[in-house]
Amino acid sequence: MKRIYDLATTWDKPVMPHSPQAGITSMASLHAYATVQNAVHPHEFSTEFSGPLDELVELYGEGVLPVKGNMHLSDRPGLGIELNETVVASLTV
């Protein structure tokens, strides 16, 4: 994605990433998208492939929850995920 964004920025072309889910992968995409100077389009968001938002918040923390159609990226380290180890253990098969 970074390489595509760099190319798009060089040629001043708009970009619009495909990311139909919520959770860690979505946060990774958002962090990369946040660095694109000429990104003018909204970023995709869907819970279809990741489950209900309340379960995701329990697993990853409030940082993955959109507010009124916007995602606010925190300045927490890494992707800003607050992994709930207890929930991870309960989901381990």
Partner: peptide, 25 residues
């Protein structure tokens, strides 16, 4: 280093990003 990924990727142009609601199938 205790830094968000967007900082290590060169710095955020924005930290509030509008989303669009995507539904499939």
């Amino acid at each position: 280093p205790g830094q968000p990924v967007y900082t290590l990727m060169g710095g955020a142009a924005r930290t509030t990003i509008p989303l669009y609601w995507s539904t499939g199938s």
